[in-house]
Design a protein around this nucleic acid. Sequence first.
DNA 1: GTCAATGCTCGTGTATACAAGAATGGCGCA
DNA 2: TGCGCCATTCTTGTATACACGAGCATTGAC
Lengths: 216, 216
Amino acid sequence: MSENVGRWLRDEIENAILSSEFAPGERLDETVLASRFGVSRTPVREALMQLNAIGLIDIRPRRGAVVIDPEPHRIYEMFEVMAELEGLAGSLAARRLDEESRQAITAAHERCERSAKIGDSDAYYYDNEAFHKAIYAASRSEFLEEQCTQLHRRLRPYRRLQLRVRNRLSTSYSEHCGIVDAIFAGDGEGARRLLRSHVGIQGERFSDLVASMATR
Amino acid sequence: MSENVGRWLRDEIENAILSSEFAPGERLDETVLASRFGVSRTPVREALMQLNAIGLIDIRPRRGAVVIDPEPHRIYEMFEVMAELEGLAGSLAARRLDEESRQAITAAHERCERSAKIGDSDAYYYDNEAFHKAIYAASRSEFLEEQCTQLHRRLRPYRRLQLRVRNRLSTSYSEHCGIVDAIFAGDGEGARRLLRSHVGIQGERFSDLVASMATR
DNA sequence: GTCAATGCTCGTGTATACAAGAATGGCGCA
DNA sequence: TGCGCCATTCTTGTATACACGAGCATTGAC
């Protein structure tokens, strides 16, 4: 439990939304949430305000809060921006790589390899997240790291859906290999280009996304 | 005045911070703010929470809120990310340009020309902002537009300082010309490259920034 | 004289009460 | 029987009260 109830609640509700326990479009009643978590309405309101600022829910005056239900084209736009930021992180990482970051990336990359080899999509999901976070950290730009982490969080549910697509696991891993090589070789532009196409969703991957969103 | 007091207050306090009325490092007392704006502490707290989420202030439990005083290297990182996002916006704008966006960009560009010619740095400051926003809109990516607008807002005070630097006005305008040419020619990669170097702060422009921050 | 501990005061964190607006259901009229 | 308007109820928005924690000052002891 975090230092104050509001932040703790924000994390709780955020996780509930990201894990689809609170479905998109669902109304979030302050009183219901308050009794569910055993607190008063005040910290619930604080948590909702923060989620509103993050962009996870929509609060309309006198109308209450609802979980945002983003349209596919908006998800696409978010991936587009994510690709750009990850590309920047990769290019900075390649230029600024130090021993510590190199080890962190290597470790995460090897965990991805194991998960991909045995085809464990859940394990790969977590290892993949660690891999990308290692690259954010290696960029040595705190602000960029924060922005990437935040956007990554919001896109988390859709990333998970993507991994279900046939062959995506091994494709993803082989793309990781190229990215690691570029970063370790100090090839900033190469890392940028590879990360951009790794993260972005072009062509049939967009229809995969739409399809998986429809059947969820 | 906005629909609810909290949002109105957020804007008021945000403007006060961005215009340096509330200096970096300054303590924001809830009671003082409440009496100053003639409201109770509740909406003040809501506004502060939102500003905290945006990243303009820092709220520590039982310690209250202080205006964030970003270090120069962090400002640099923010410009670095901004450059990347604007580059993306420019490349998308070049590929997706329609008549409406073309006219908006042209209009803003011509206003910049007038302000630059007469050396009116304040007018140029506003026209420049409109110019960049026209490019965000031309990208036809709502999410990217939001992200750019938000980051632009946070960097606003420093942009203003930068314009004070000798010759920056005319240099900036001539860079705009190249950007407009690239976008109108449908040259996405050219627009991206030019915008990145236009927005980013490399070399001596970083020391200019640090110097202007110190003497403000 | 200096350092540490305790107590007081100020300010934030949470709860609750009250008011205002929006939505829904019922009743009346066409 | 259907549509529209009014009233009631529910939910949010704001205010205020109370409690807890942190910081600072003062006093006592070494």
